[in-house]
Design a protein around this nucleic acid. Structure first.
Lengths: 216, 216
DNA sequence: CGTGGATAAACTGTATGCAGTTTTCAGGAA
DNA sequence: TTCCTGAAAACTGCATACAGTTTATCCACG
């Protein structure tokens, strides 16, 4: 009996169905169909739906089927807005609180990605980008804020794919990161916060093409 | 069969056990005992535990009992920190975005609570206080930020009880609200944000006595 | 042709049972 | 005594079964 991971796998699989658009907002997720599809009983399906509900990907009401959450353009905008604010806070706190070692690692991570920009290595840069932002979240030394920003990032993930495909975005992203790093190394919280806020706001614009068309 | 509410009731009941201290951090919540206690089967108990996990009140690991989350002083501080930042953001956005009607309602709500301060009506003031803050959250017109701040507030609820029992806190709270309202009505986002940030920071200090002693 | 209502099908919420894992505890060796 | 070992007890994860609710269908009626 493969325990523990079964539900987790299903959560990922269903989440993928939703974020790739295979399931549209408003679509019903009935437990029996999903159970057949994944060849398990309804019990773990229900568990997975609970988690997806907590993640905000599906809505549930008593005695009704779970449905794919309809993320409106308005809500999407609001999530990017929150993201910009939260990253701004993290960067500011990083400037104030990061240990010397954390600062060095952040700078190293940042400089390492410079090569990737020249080579136009989108995939690899994406990985470094994720790592860079994670360092910002943890460098703030505030567990709950880290939690909020991580959670928001996860919910935005489906809408920020492919952002680096946009011409010149790689170099621009690096330049923006540079501003953030410089400010943090100078312990200039206000500047770091503003730079991070601006950075995310730009990603928002670059991602706005992925806006969900309101369904029904 | 009373459906839908059964699990919800259990979630509230168990949450109460945790926040009142009847269950200590680290205590195991085994499904069978809870099932007997609430006279239901394990299935709804598991559902309730999932939700409590999503709320951050309990921790779960595969094949192990759920345990009451150990909220350390560090994490508690971090939650208040996040709350101050988030309320600051809300107040700033309120100053920028509230409709004329929302501004009037906020002011009316605030003025109505003035009487309660004189009478020292702690209970009633508490209700008005909650309403006041809710108006700030919704007045920001940013669904996701509203969601984050509401969620954080819920998790802090157990630790901010009785804050108004502290002598003079009622009048001080009102004065702080006054600063926030004045700034919002003047559409001064920066001042509103700072006032709200300071307001929450003070509550944090007033509540620090409720710090959880790390348990094992 | 459209509408309302009753009946049937489909589906959700909960209970129970079994398989596998973790925890506990007793007994023996160092 | 303390530490390991192993078997039993306790518990979790999942499957299945049943009761109750919602949704879909169909037929009568306007």
């Amino acid at each position: 009996m493969r325990s523990g991971t079964t539900v987790e796998q299903m959560v990922r699989a269903i989440a993928d169905l939703i974020v790739t658009g295979a399931m549209q907002p408003g679509d019903r997720l009935d437990e029996i169909s999903l159970a057949n599809r994944f060849e398990v009983s309804r019990t773990p399906v229900r568990e997975a739906l609970s988690q997806l509900c907590a993640m905000g990907l599906v809505d549930r009401q008593p005695n009704k089927s779970a449905v794919v959450t309809n993320v409106t353009q308005k809500h999407l905008t609001s999530m990017f807005e929150a993201m910009a604010e939260l990253e701004g806070i993290c960067a500011r706190l990083c400037a104030e609180r990061m240990t010397l070692e954390e600062r060095k690692l952040l700078e190293a991570e940042h400089l390492a990605s410079a090569r990737l920009v020249h080579r136009g290595a989108e995939e690899e840069y994406e990985a470094h980008n994720t790592e860079f932002h994670s360092r910002l979240y943890y460098g703030a030394h505030s567990d709950h804020i880290t939690e909020l920003v991580t959670q928001t990032r996860a919910r935005l993930a489906p809408f920020r794919r492919a952002q680096f495909r946009i011409a010149g975005r790689l170099a621009q992203s690096f330049a923006e990161h540079d501003k953030i790093v410089t400010a943090i190394l100078q312990a200039d919280g206000a500047a770091a916060g503003q730079a991070a806020y601006a950075h995310v706001s730009i990603v928002r614009e670059a991602s706005s093409v992925f806006a969900t068309v309101p369904v029904k």
